[in-house]
């Protein structure tokens, strides 16, 4: 009985909390340079994904292609909280994560088109891309698998007595996989330096969080393991960056894992062939009109005179040119040589 009471007391003092995060208030804490980088990085992802969607329509990209449009503030804000030596891993909606990690849009786009110049030499595709150089560990196609893998990266960081930490992303669908909780348990047990970032875009393919989750407050999912969690406005890059910094500081200090639930939204269907009939057009339009992370930041930049309209247009043109180059590269890079069929199976 005493033990039970004690454990109940512990869980009731759980650190999970809803952060109302001084989203707008946080803005002044960031320098103009940081704000411009946020804008640039988010817009790069947005334009990249729009283009990927377009060339998918032209038959240049095959198979599954999951676009990140709408969720850009999450990866861009989180990236600002880590160093280039920290590790990042995610599931299959991964193009944004790779671009945020500084991977070359050409190599990412060429992997989407299945060409030699792609990050995986054309053998991985949209869902399976990696860059050791950028400390990006994939790109994993099985829902849930990246969570133990990310926990393993953190295990290695601690084992090697490194200061580095891991950002382990997952979606709201992932959190109902058992291996997620196996990971939370081990990460807390062994105080591993990992921030679990739950990107709650409200729909696991076509199933809403309400229809799939008994506990819809996903930041509380670490309660049973004493992993602190926090809910963040994932459509606000400042709120993400601020929460990210706090979580990363916690983890880097050796206090064990931390959960951030990013409330975000994906504008497009689950994959290219998803007509998204499980939600209303009004819902999507409302999110886009009122909560778009890029429009929101753009307005702040204009209001605070960080940049002029013309300067922002110039950024837009610059990004368009980068994306156009990426597409050209991805179209012109040759298909992998037939000999590549049998390489990279074993070392």
């Amino acid at each position: 009985m005493a033990r039970q009471a004690a454990s109940r007391a512990k869980s009731s003092s759980s650190t999970a909390k809803k952060s109302t995060g001084g989203a707008r208030k946080a803005a002044p804490k960031f320098s103009d340079e940081q704000i411009q980088k946020f804008y640039y990085d988010m817009l790069l992802i947005r334009r990249f994904e729009e283009k990927a969607g377009q060339i998918y329509g032209m038959g240049l990209i095959g198979g599954f292609c999951h676009l990140y449009i709408g969720q850009e503030a999450v990866v861009v804000g989180m990236k600002s909280a880590i160093t280039d030596d920290d590790a990042v891993i995610t599931s299959y909606r991964d193009h944004g994560h790779m671009l945020a990690c500084g991977m070359d849009p050409k190599g990412v786009m060429a992997e989407l088109t299945g060409r030699e110049g792609g990050y995986s030499k054309g053998k991985g595709g949209s869902m399976h891309m990696f860059s050791k150089e950028a400390n990006f560990y994939g790109g994993h196609g099985i829902v849930g698998a990246c969570v133990p893998l990310g926990t393993g990266l953190a295990f290695s960081q601690k084992y090697q007595k490194s200061e580095d930490i891991t950002l382990c992303y997952m979606g709201d669908g992932t959190v109902n996989q058992g291996q997620v909780y196996e990971s939370f348990n081990m990460a807390e047990l062994w105080s591993l330096p990992v921030v679990y970032v739950i990107e709650n875009n409200e729909y696991a393919m076509g199933t809403s969080v309400k229809r799939s989750s008994a506990q819809t407050e996903l930041y509380k999912r670490g309660d049973s393991f004493n992993v602190p969690g926090e809910q963040v406005d994932g459509m606000d890059v400042f709120a993400v960056a601020a929460a990210g910094k706090k979580a990363v500081d916690w983890v880097r200090a050796g206090k064990g894992p931390y959960i951030l639930e990013m409330k975000t939204y994906r504008y497009r269907g689950h994959s290219m062939s998803d007509p998204a009939k499980y939600r209303s057009k009004e819902e999507v339009n409302k999110k886009r009109a009122e909560h778009d992370p890029i429009d929101h930041l753009r307005q702040i930049m204009l209001d605070k005179k960080v940049n002029t309209e013309e300067e922002l247009k110039e950024i837009d043109r610059k990004i368009k040119a980068i994306i156009a180059d990426a597409v050209e590269f991805a179209q012109n890079s040759p298909e992998p040589q037939p000999e590549e069929l049998y390489t990279d199976v074993l070392a």
Partner: peptide
């Protein structure tokens, strides 16, 4: 540090092992 008892959690610790191998162990 190098001989580690895990919980009964095969799916999880197998994945942790793979992640650690990705990272150089």
């Amino acid at each position: 540090r190098r001989v580690i008892d895990t919980p009964i959690t095969e799916h999880g610790f197998a994945g942790v092992g793979v992640g650690a191998a990705f990272h150089g162990l």
